[in-house]
Design a protein around this nucleic acid. Structure first.
Lengths: 124, 124
DNA sequence: TAGCTGGTTCGACATGTGTCAACATAGACG
DNA sequence: CGTCTATGTTGACACATGTCGAACCAGCTA
């Protein structure tokens, strides 16, 4: 799966990192479509193992980490791979193979978009 | 169920609304316990119906809303009640009966704690 | 070519989750 | 008291999800 196929949570101007998918939760009731889109992000982080994996990547130096650096979360290696794939499908991570190892990297604009959903004062 | 039974996502100083359950996701890898706690929040918002209900309450004037005001989300009434209970168990909402109607209210400090998880720059 | 290591995919299973119809409960109002 | 309306609870069901072992693929090294 290429990384370009999955980036569901940003608006058309996602490249500039300024257009969240939806207004803050407290601004107005979300539409069904907005909720569908945003729920996919929250769902991706709604598992303890995925949250640890994501945090491990996000806090790693350079914002990227090899699978081998973060796979010590108490589940089998196929399960780690499964969860990383889920995070990738949610648009939260991208992956790249460099030689023997595969590196995962956070998608900063998506993270910021999620933050804006929750913290109205952080909006422009 | 009383409201006091469920407030899983804030630290000991939750009353002051200043102690999130966990550091920002990008600061350091989360521990298993932190991830367990935080994942419960994200999971609660990881369903489109719950997200719409939560957004409806959060955006309602006064930060609270009667069930009758927000139950138009395309699912049956028992399902609405079920989802509101989930949001309550996650500590995101509290409820109070006033006469005939039941009012739900957002827990602002929990919302802010979630925001801090995602937006490191918003931390103190 | 063969073998080794890191990572993903497959197949199967148990558990969790969203949903509804039916029933139960809490107040209001007569 | 009885009845009506507004919510919550129960039970059942279909479906999604987390997990693992086994098999598979990609690149390195000999």
């Amino acid at each position: 799966m290429s990384n370009a196929e999955v980036l569901p949570l940003l608006g058309p101007a996602a490249d500039q990192g300024v257009t969240p998918c939806c207004p803050p939760l407290t601004e107005r009731p979300m539409t069904a479509e907005e909720a569908e889109t945003a729920a996919r992000m929250f769902k991706a982080l709604g598992d303890p193992v995925r949250l640890r994996l994501f945090s491990a990547v996000a806090s790693h130096e350079g914002g990227e980490a090899c699978v081998c650096d973060i796979s010590d979360v108490g589940v089998s290696q196929p399960t780690v791979s499964h969860h990383l794939k889920k995070l990738k499908e949610a648009g939260l991570l991208t992956s790249e193979r460099r030689g023997t190892w595969v590196y995962y990297r956070v998608e900063p604009s998506v993270l910021a978009a999620m933050g804006r959903l929750l913290v109205p004062s952080a909006a422009a």
